[in-house]
Design a protein around this nucleic acid. Structure first.
Lengths: 245, 245
DNA sequence: GTTGATTTTTATGTATACAATCCTATTATG
DNA sequence: CATAATAGGATTGTATACATAAAAATCAAC
């Protein structure tokens, strides 16, 4: 059996409680975020098994988890592929996040402990460092973790679980539509502002900032939408030309 | 191999696309709702496999799905048990539902088609019939399906997926705290009112009704909370008496 | 040369066998 | 008699083998 990566003994860090499928799950998820597995990529169970040195059983578990979060699409009898959400689906996901983030923000303003707020700041500093040194994948992931930690602070496990799924999807979307050009992904500025509002327990300001934050994501989608639209028009311009002539 | 229930050939109805783990999933879930599997019950993989005439592989998939929805608790190396949410957890679940149902109700008021509204009415009529003939389990399930169908009408897949999980959990909670006595579970009246408000596209009225609807569930929890508190006090009254004397 | 049917191959779905872990009952010891 | 240690049994975790369905490739016919 060929094993490109032994995972049983790797990552002997602090956590140590991570089970094998967790590790596989995270590796695949990271690869998707960092675009090493672009949308639409077929995820072959046996290949993945060889890569991680585990049986298909483990791979299958990881894939169903990713499927449940809708980061990959599971097609019965036809295997799993990396999800490639359309602009419309992306908008629906952002809408769902608006709903959750509003509730989370309000809860956090009520319940946040000062120690947690410090933790938040550190997270954003790490995020900033990633973007500054050009590590986009890690940056997007940390940006997601910021929002996840907020949901944790809200002390509502069901909302947290939903947020986890939404953040995963949003990260996928950002990675998909962040086509190099728009490097204006300085979300960490807005994260710092948000933390200040929370520290001041200014609920309405915090919510407004959060909505504004999501506006930015959605705005980027709109830009890409137009771009895609233009591309399509360019591609079929000859057809259109013929038809109208 | 002993098979108490052959599922390969059963249910040859309309759907037909249901895979084996779906069927197992639904059977277990229904059993939980109908309290045939009370909270805390250990779910032995091999036993379930024999009952449904499938291997542990299928049972495991069904259990992880139930685990993801938090209807059962998966304890590593120690198997699955039916979830037994505390009153506090129940309140958090209801809170999450408030968040989702508000958004869903608003979306539905905007997007509902008349044919769907008819479908809704039929669902509630079925629900009413179940409660009238004393089939509590089926009633709770149909009540849940009403809310699920609403989420479907909202045309937002992520919200729908979250709603599915929340409705499952709420059904479990209702089943758990619906201790025979409070048969005042005539939720279908409120469902009919809600449909009217939606048909009239009266967003604020519909949302108010929905919140009111959830108030009822939460109120029932509070009652049970006090009851449990009283029970405990009754149980340990002698101890308290001795201490204070 | 293209289309359509048939075979071959590959990948997924399911069952089962083995390994690791946890629970329990028995025994030993203070 | 209570507690701790250990051995046995039972249950979950993982790997693998087999069954089934989809995809690919080959060949036939037009």
């Amino acid at each position: 059996m060929s094993r490109l990566t032994e995972i049983k003994k790797s990552d002997p860090k602090k956590g140590e409680k991570k089970t094998q499928d967790d590790i596989v799950y995270e590796h695949i998820f990271d690869a998707i975020l960092e675009q090493r597995l672009p949308p639409g990529t077929k995820l072959n169970e046996e290949s993945l098994g060889e890569i991680f040195g585990v049986s298909r059983t483990i791979i299958r578990r990881a894939l169903s988890r990713l499927g449940y979060e809708q980061v990959v699409v599971l097609r019965p009898n036809r295997g799993a592929v990396v999800a490639s959400p359309t602009i419309d689906e992306a908008r629906q996901i952002v809408f769902a996040r608006r709903v959750v983030e509003k509730a989370v923000t309000e809860l956090v303003c009520d319940n946040a402990e000062t120690a947690q707020i410090e933790q938040l700041k550190q997270l954003v500093r790490d995020e900033q460092a990633c973007f500054d040194r050009g590590d986009l994948g890690a940056g997007i992931r940390l940006s997601g973790e910021f929002h996840l930690y907020l949901a944790e602070m809200a002390k509502n496990p069901p909302l947290l679980s939903f947020q986890r799924s939404l953040v995963s999807l949003c990260s996928l979307i950002i990675a998909q539509f962040e086509k190099g050009e728009s490097k204006s992904h300085c979300s960490y500025d807005e994260h710092f502002e948000l933390i200040d509002a929370i520290a001041q327990r200014d609920k309405s300001k915090a919510v407004a900032l959060m909505m504004h934050h999501l506006d930015h994501i959605e705005h980027k989608l709109s830009l890409d939408d137009e771009a895609a639209d233009n591309d399509l028009k360019a591609i079929f311009s000859n057809v259109l030309g013929r038809k109208s002539s």
